[in-house]
Design a protein around this nucleic acid. Structure first.
Lengths: 192, 192, 192, 192
DNA sequence: CATGAATGAGGCTTCATTCAT
DNA sequence: CATGAATGAAGCCTCATTCAT
């Protein structure tokens, strides 16, 4: 990702993939939005698939930097989970197009789709470790940590996706308190 | 959906769409799996898009019959939410391919994608009504019923999807107790 | 052309052919407009081409009855030419769709196109005979009777076509005096 | 129409269209005759229709250059009409295929057909202006200049078409004196 | 490094025709 | 006689990829 030419093409690709999906996106459109000739795209990326693979790698890196790396190592489990939820929403807001791509292209048996799932699995695994630690310390009570980890991820990502498609500019961060509360504490009235 | 021929083609379409996604699925493959000539597919459905539209309609009907219609009208909110979760999982198990299609093709701006979202919105709205009733009766305590409804749906569907892609035959119903518990009551140890 | 069924289909064919042209017309549309099943069309006419051949035959007959047969055998050449022009315009008015088909499909090397040209040649030959007779009697002075015959036919038919496409209901007969005069006498001011 | 490749394809298109007509012509055949791959045709012209539109534009230009621009501005009306007839025949001879296409595809309601008619209307209008001028100067005596203009055009074009289909190599220019004379002066014997 | 013309495999769709009922 | 479901050849068009400049 050295040259700025490469980056311009890459950004155009994210743009186009998120708008059309992998199959319907065309290399012509990507080249046009990047403002380069089609041959140039092929000079920097060997194929359409390759462009997509790059996306996964880049995304994994970003997810690390912008979400996982920000989880406080020494806080309590609940607090760490709250941070995950909040930062994941922030990540969605900051990388809208990219997130749409991932969540749309993760379910299937094509090579790139497995790649995307691997990335999600990796992320969910991080959630799981927080939960495991919380359980070990007696702070949390979770029978099926794997299921719970996926359901947290699913709840946050699907909800975010829904609001983004309702309104491109929706401030996802405002959902954070509600999601944190309902996911961690549930919503049955304590009184009952 | 009268003739059995029509149904055969429709089933083949679900099959192929779930395996390849809308864009990559080919009418040739659908015809081959249905065991008819390509022209026959077009005799029964006027286009690829049309086949997809049928899918939405059929799916909406199934979702109604197999999930929404089974929610007990007079039970308590918590109980009704548990049923929704359980039946949704059962629905995923019974209509694996169809569900994969929906969740994959729901996010985008194409006509069929909006159609799918409309269907999801409809379903989530049903969850929301249960929550509203529970809040009205004091049984539940929910600040943001919309967000919570989407997060329930997202949690269940994403988790189901994940397990299905890990193992086609995974018994999704076994996830039900865990999801019911963690979603409704949260998972912070009561002790703390 | 016995049964009324056959006639209904034939009329529908003229309708559709004149609207779409031979190639773009479909047997489905013809069947639909005739109010019969597609198989029925094939029961009465062996193929699309066959339907077209019928058209030529039928048209030739009509042209005979409605134009050629009305030329007074014993009148002077000029008078007979005037009748030809007038009756040809009347024929266009009465068989609008059919005439459009003929003039559109006459120029090409396909079998049916040669057939149509044969029909035109036959008609133009009738004009030529009038001219020849007029020349023989000293009434007319024509160096190239063949060329003149075609140019009369071309002038009348093209002009008619133009007005019909400007206005479906245009009264073609009103063109008759003008065409008769200008074709037979020319239009250079006699004074000069 | 810059590159020679583009021109080769265009020529092949005229060739094929004139031989088969718009509907029956295939892009495969055009590509084959141009000696390029099918994709190449689409690289230069975005659709079959587009190729046809080009034809109209190109043809309109040629008609201007080769016919209309050659009409002497200061000659007498009769002389100018003679030139129109002569140059139109020359145009038919020089652009045989193109002319066949135009006259065959001008009558119908499709977009391209209206386009072709527009072109003819433009041309006939030029004839009409000559006639109008001749009438104004007292040189001609024409009651219905519009009808006469169309009939001149129809006479020349239909006659030319007929001879071309009889003999591809027929020397159309030899028809000019006959057509000029019979159209302008009529053919009733002056003696009578 | 960059270009963009050229390619051809492959996809969607149409439609004349057949044939079992 | 009549039907309409079924067929498959054939047409239009797209687009990832290559390559000579």
């Amino acid at each position: 990702m050295a040259s700025s030419r490469t980056r311009r093409i890459f950004q155009a690709a994210i743009d186009v993939f998120s708008e059309y999906g992998f199959e319907k996106a065309t290399m012509d459109e990507i080249a046009a939005r990047a403002g380069v000739a089609k041959g140039t795209v092929y000079y920097h990326f060997k194929s359409k698939e390759d462009l997509f693979v790059f996306l996964v790698e880049e995304g994994t890196k970003l997810l690390h930097e912008q979400v996982l790396a920000r989880i406080p190592a020494d806080a309590k489990a609940e607090q760490r989970l709250r941070v995950v939820i909040r930062e994941l929403l922030a990540f969605f807001r900051a990388n809208r197009d990219f997130c749409i791509i991932i969540l749309r292209e993760a379910w299937g048996e094509e090579g790139r789709q497995r790649e995307f799932r691997r990335m999600l699995v990796h992320f969910v695994h991080a959630i799981r470790e927080i939960i495991d630690a919380g359980v070990a310390s007696g702070e949390l009570m979770v029978e099926a940590p794997d299921t719970v980890s996926w359901s947290i991820f699913g709840a946050v990502s699907n909800t975010a996706l829904h609001y983004l498609f309702m309104d491109k500019e929706y401030d996802l961060l405002s959902l954070s308190p509600q999601l944190e509360r309902s996911l961690i504490h549930g919503f049955v009235s304590p009184a009952l």
